[in-house]
Computed example of a mutant assay.
Amino acid sequence: MPEGVRLLHHVADGPAGAPALILGPSLGTSLAVWEPQAAALARHFRVVRFDLPGHGGSAAVPLSSMGDLAGRVLDLAGALGVERFHYAGISLGGAIGAWLAAHHPGRIESLALLCSAARFGEPEAWRDRAALVRAEGTGPLASAALGRWFTEEGARTPAAQRLAADLAAADPDGYADCCDALAGYDLRGHLARITAPTLVVAGRDDPATPPAVARELADGIPGAALAEIPRAAHLANVERPEAVLAALRGHLPVPDGMTVRRAVLGDEHVDRAVAATTGFTADFQDFITRYAWGEIWTRPGLDRRTRSCITLTALVAGGHLEELAMHVRAAVRNGLTPDEIKEVLLQTAVYCGVPAANAAFAVAQRTLGRT
């Protein structure tokens, strides 16, 4: 990344050790456009949402092509230490992901393209919009944008008004540069180069990228699946959040029991447990991997931080101090701070008894290296 250029503004949620999922927004919106799905997806993935240049919290930087935008996303992934990642994007955000999947296939684990296209109409229309915004700002676009983004019913919702505010706040140069990138974007001849498992999502009432455009993507990308969302326009994930979440959940690979076990307990611990497995204990190791880690820890109802809090409490109550040390380390890996672990143990003093909490504090202090 050029010296002095800041990373795209971003927010990361979910377990630090979970597979990375980068979510790209549509033109004129901010990372808030993914709020309907972010929390649910963060139960299984390290979810990274970003703002386009000149949008939300990202500074406007000179760019003129989809490759420039994609390069900014790769800069962000590099800064976060992420080599390979799952990617889902809406409209322009989807185009960024498709460009990455075609030109940097080794970086993309899976791809979801929401209300996107291989080419977004005639280049001149985008150049005209860029000129208008540079001259007058994004104000003249507001009414037409709501009509593209939402059905008539959806445009009256608070969510629609919040996203309209994002458009009004966008930097004119940053927005116009994104229009220039769209003007030069045409991936139709390169779709067959995309090898990542791909889901294409279309809003059935989308006037900007209608289902026929989505089918062009799905037909051109080998093995791609297509899902159409009824009663949804261009921002289908905002207008029909549960339907889009269900489609994404069906597409994204939910980590299996061993993957989650390693993410929570660490490779070193799991490798020792596997190496110590005997014919007598093999069935038990298989049981806890499939049931505890594959069925319980992967359920979407609670995030891993919350599950760590519950597990610590249960182990204190049962007096399982050796397992407690293991799960204190796991709690840190799941994002709990030592102060938060202390609060959990204080809570156990009330409900599990002072002697149990006293022993637990001793174990936790040794494990955390506190004096």
Rank of each mutant, 00 (worst) to 15 (best):
V344Y: 04
D177Q: 13
L167V: 05
A183D: 06
L248A: 01
A40C: 02
E3H: 13
G147R: 13
A263S: 14
I90A: 14
L31W: 13
C309V: 15
E122F: 10
L8M: 09
A164W: 02
A112E: 09
V254I: 15
R333A: 13
E242G: 13
A164T: 06
G57I: 01
R370H: 13
R249E: 15
P105W: 01
V48E: 08
L302P: 10
Q347P: 08
F150K: 02
V264S: 08
A218T: 08
A168W: 05
G94C: 04
P210D: 03
G250C: 03
P207L: 00
T311H: 05
A227P: 05
T195S: 15
F361I: 01
P222F: 06
D205K: 07
A145H: 11
A357W: 03
V354E: 11
E239K: 08
A214I: 06
H320Y: 14
L302G: 09
G203D: 12
A225M: 12
H9A: 15
D171M: 04
S30Q: 06
E340P: 11
R240D: 10
V274M: 14
F50G: 04
R129M: 01
G294H: 09
Q365H: 12
Y185F: 15
R262M: 03
P241K: 02
A227C: 14
F361E: 03
R304D: 12
L265T: 06
I194G: 10
D173L: 14
D51L: 02
G301Y: 12
G220C: 01
S91K: 02
R262T: 07
L31G: 13
R162L: 14
L235K: 07
C115A: 14
A233F: 11
A79V: 03
P211S: 01
L163D: 14
G14R: 03
I296V: 15
D177E: 14
A243W: 06
V254D: 00
G335N: 08
F120L: 15
V73G: 07
